[in-house]
């Protein structure tokens, strides 16, 4: 039994390669995938979601480059021991409540949703430039 099922949305505007990568990252973040778990083989993935095999190969390779998975030749692809630990659900909930409060104050200041998204992206970009973890 594989611990992850992929779902591909043709209308999301996000490439299939990126969708696969995001789903593995999210599964690790939420603890559905744990270090040592084996990802389904390329053959298994394509026979379930009907996608080009190279798309899956590329996604697994990208995940390997980011250190989230390791490929053992001839055996399979596994979640790396060094993969980030899942976000604590309580912490996640409290962050979500803080953000909701922030969104309320942003709306009161007259910001609409796209402007809010732009601001979030701007701050994320600034912080990654400064090297803030």
């Amino acid at each position: 039994m594989t611990p992850i099922d992929f779902h591909l949305n043709p209308r999301s505007g996000i490439s299939y390669n990126t969708q696969l990568i995001q789903q593995v990252r999210q599964a690790i973040r939420f603890g559905r995938l744990r270090p040592g778990d084996q990802l389904p083989s390329v053959r298994e993935v394509v026979s379930r979601v009907a996608v080009n095999p190279n798309t899956v190969l590329k996604a697994y390779r990208d995940l390997e480059h980011s250190g989230l998975v390791v490929t053992k030749t001839g055996i399979g692809t596994f979640v790396a021991e060094s993969a980030p630990s899942p976000v604590d659900p309580n912490r996640y909930e409290s962050l979500r409540k803080d953000l909701a409060k922030w969104v309320v104050s942003a709306r009161r200041a007259g910001m609409d949703d796209p402007t809010i998204m732009d601001l979030v992206e701007l701050v994320l970009r600034e912080m990654s430039k400064r090297g803030v973890a």
């Binding site: 591909l8 390329v42 053959r43 394509v46 026979s47 379930r48 009907a50 996608v51 080009n52 095999p53």
Partner: peptide
């Protein structure tokens, strides 16, 4: 799904004609 499973076998080259471009983009 069946076609992609076959394509994931080493070396099989596939050439398919179709008008359903959304499907083609995927496979």
């Amino acid at each position: 799904k069946e076609l992609m499973e076959a394509a994931s076998t080493d070396g099989l080259t596939v050439l398919l004609s179709s008008h359903v471009i959304a499907d083609l983009e995927r496979v």
